[in-house]
Each structure stands twice: as structure tokens, then as C-alpha cells.
Amino acid sequence: MGVLQLLISGLANGCVYGLIALGFVLIYKATEAVNFAQGDFMMLGAFVTLGLVNPEYMGIPFWVALPFVFLIMGVLGYLLDLIVLRAVFGQSQVAVIILTIAIGFIIRFVVGVIWGHEPQSLQSPLALGDVRLGSLVLGLADVAVIIVTLLMTVALWQFFQRTKIGLAMQAASQNQMAAYYMGIPVKRVQGMVWALAGIVAAVAGILYASKGSIDPTAGFIGIKAFAAAVIGGFGSLPGALMGGLIVGLIEPFAARYLPPGYSQIAPYALLIAVLLFRPHGLFAQVRAKKV
């Protein structure tokens, strides 16, 4: 494979990591909780889409099903916050972490029961096959994944900059107390951030499933996405995406240029290096409060 091919498939993987990492950071910034089920959310989003779209299940046309996927995943995210996470409000971080890990187990179990444990492929309009340009073989799905991620990033950016609720989400995550003072219903806004994280996870899941098959263990890439979020700087949305891209790129190049086996640990080696030398991450937004 040429360098260009490595680059594109690495970037495409990185986009999926980046979107999952985005989900981590969204929730962390809004609620200071780390949702370790974010990878499983991604997997669930893929299976919900598959269940609606694939001919062996409901067979609804993809573009008709898409709004329902977003709705289902958004509502699930919102309810998870409302019913489960608010029940442990005020408990230690560890309680929240263990709870979200448990939720991840439950999602894997439920998906396995409903759709089985065999790898399946989503009938995605992005699964476009390969195109051959001379000696170069380009995965069109990879290119599509990169484009969709770009569009998603722009859409999110606009959402946070231009909409009232987007601004309120930023406000509530920067200074929760002051958000209350402004009359922002902080709890509801946090629920909406969970809903948004559910939708972002659905997009990530659809992209993941467009590049290959999916099975209930796919959510484990959430661990790499978590590393990506830390590398990027856990409090920064652009950082999360960049961290995802970096991890995505490191893997294929390490596989190509390092002795066998090293590519598996390369992202974590980078994680440790970042934690040692730039503990706030590569793209941290840190601003001390003035007195």
C-alpha cells in the first residue's frame, strides 16, 4: 500500500475515533462525568441503523431511517442521564465510571440478544467499495467517512456558535453555577448534551459500519477513542477530533514501519508521552480564573 492509501485509511479510522472521543469530551465538559459506554453507544448506533435499514430486518430506506436513528439514540442518551446518572448525582467519580462501564456491558448484552453476535454489514450508502487509480486502490468508504466527519464537525461548530441552546451548553460546562444564575435550566441542558452525544455516537457507528462489518464487541475501540481524547486534551472538542486523527494515523504507519506488534501499543505509548510532557493534552483549553 502506498503512503497515500495509508494516510486515507488511517484518517478514516481516526475520524471514527475522533467522533467517539468527541462524545467523551462533550459529556465530560457538561457534567464532569466520563461515559465509558461511549464506544458501546457507537456500536449501538450502528446496530439500530442496521436493524432499521437492512433488508433482513425492517428494510426501511437509509435516508428515511436516519432521522429515526438520531431520535432513538438522542432519546436514549437523554434518558440515560435522566434515569441512571442523576440517581448517582453527588456520588464519587468512581461510582459514575463503574456505572457507565456496567451500562456498556448491558448494551453489548442487549445488542447480542436482539441482533446476534455474528459480524454483520450495514447496507450503508457510504459503503462504496474501492476505486483503482493506476496502482492506487482507494477505499471510497474511507473518503466518504472523512467527508461526513468534516461536515459533522462544521455542523457541530455552527450549533455551538449560533444556537441559543449550543451557547447554553457551553456556558453550563464553563461555569455551572453562573449558568444557574442566568436562568439556564442546567439539568435539562446536561440531558441535551447526553442526547447530542448519543447522536454523535450514532454517526460514528454508521461510519464505522460503512467501512466494514460490525459485531457487539466493536465498542471496545472506545478505549482507543478515550486515549485519543486524553491525547487531544480532555476538555477540548477540536482536541478530541485531532487526537482521534492522530491515533488513527499512528496505527497504520506504525504497522508499516515498526516491527510487528508495535502498532497495537503505539497509541498508548503516545498517550503516556503526552501525559508525561503535556498533561493537559496537546490542544488543551486552560484558562485560570481571575480573582
Binding site: 457551553q170 456556558a171 464553563q174 461555569n175 453562573a178 484558562r287
Partner: peptide
Amino acid sequence: IVHVPEGREVFPLL
């Protein structure tokens, strides 16, 4: 009723 809190409490990154 608006409460202007002790120690300003602005939204620092906005």
C-alpha cells in the same frame, strides 16, 4: 430576579 454573584463568575471562554 437576577443574582450577580460574588467573585463575578463570568463564562471565561465565551
